[in-house]
Nucleic acid binder design. Structure first.
Lengths: 138, 138
DNA sequence: GAGTTTTAATTAGCATGCTAACTAATATAA
DNA sequence: TTATATTAGTTAGCATGCTAATTAAAACTC
C-alpha cells in the first residue's frame, strides 16, 4: 500500500531529522524542542507563555518546564505582566538572541541535505502536498 | 524560501501526527514509540534487542527501558539466549499479538486523514520524493 | 459585593529518548 | 592460557512532552 509506505517514510524522516537536530543543538548547549520555542521568540519577543504554547502546539506544562530550563541557562527571562498578574511575558536575553544565527545555519544545512537532488518543480509540488497534509491534520 | 517552508511543514506534520498517535495509543494502554517496537516484532518475533534497536533507529538504553515497561505490562517477554548469555530475544505475548489489529487501524485511519484529497499520481510522486529525502538523511 | 467560573501558569508523576558510565559475557591476541 | 578488546544490555541522570491536579489571579454572574 502506497499510503502506508508514505506514512512509514514520513516517520523515518521525522526520526532521522530529530536525531540530526539533537546532535547539532547539543553543540550549542540546547536540547531538542527548545529551538522551536526560540524561533517564535525571534519572530515576536515578549510574547506570553500562552501565545507561545499555541504557536508551538505544546501543552502549557511543557512550555512551563522548558522555559524554566532556558531561564536557568540565561537564554530567556520572564516578566510578570503589570496589569494581569497571571500572565508572564517571555523575552530573549542577548545570549538567546545570539543563538538565532547558529540555529538558522543548522536548519539551512539540514534543508540542503534533506532536499538534495530534488528539482524545483518537485519542490513546488511537494510544498503544495505537504500543505494539504498539514491542513488535513488540523 | 521554499526549502524552509517544506522543513517547517514537515515539522508541523510530525508534531501533529505524534499527538494523534499518542492520544489513540493511550486508549490501547500504550505510549508513543512503543508501537514502533511492536511493529518490528510482528514482522519478526523473537528478534534480539540489538536487532530491534537497529530497526527502530534508537539507542540501546531506550530499547532497554521501553522493553522493561512493555514486559511489566505483559505485552512482551524476554528470554536470554542459551548459547550467548549476553543476548536477549524479545517475544510478543498473546496480549502483544492482539495489539496488531488495533494499531494497524490507527495507522490506516491516520493515512486516510493525512492523505485526503491527494490524487494517486501525486501519491506516487510524493513517495518517490520522500524516499529520496529519507535516503539523503542516511 | 460575594460566590462562581474561567484563565494562566506551575507542580507531580510518568514514559520516551538521549549520553555516559557501568556490568557481564564472549571473542581475540599475546 | 591469560590479558585485552569487543559486544549486549542495564542503570543513572537529564530534558522533552504528556495528563491530572493544583495555585493564583481575573472575569463573570447573581
Amino acid at each position: 500500500m502506497i499510503e502506508s509506505e508514505i506514512r512509514i517514510l514520513l516517520q523515518s524522516i521525522a526520526i532521522q531529522t530529530r536525531k540530526r537536530y539533537a546532535n547539532q543543538l547539543r553543540e550549542l548547549g540546547l536540547h531538542i524542542g527548545q529551538e522551536l520555542a526560540l524561533s517564535h521568540l525571534w519572530e515576536q519577543d515578549g510574547i506570553t507563555q500562552s501565545q507561545l504554547r499555541l504557536k508551538m502546539g505544546s501543552e502549557a506544562s511543557t512550555v512551563s518546564n522548558m522555559l524554566r530550563k532556558l531561564e536557568q541557562d540565561d537564554i530567556i527571562y520572564r516578566k510578570v505582566d503589570d496589569a494581569d498578574h497571571r500572565i508572564s511575558n517571555v523575552f530573549l536575553t542577548s545570549k538567546g538572541r545570539q543563538l538565532e544565527g547558529p540555529i538558522m545555519e543548522i536548519w539551512k544545512a539540514h534543508e540542503q541535505v534533506l532536499l538534495a537532488g530534488i528539482v524545483p518543480e518537485e519542490l513546488l509540488l511537494l510544498r503544495r502536498i505537504l500543505q494539504q497534509m498539514d491542513d488535513n491534520l488540523l
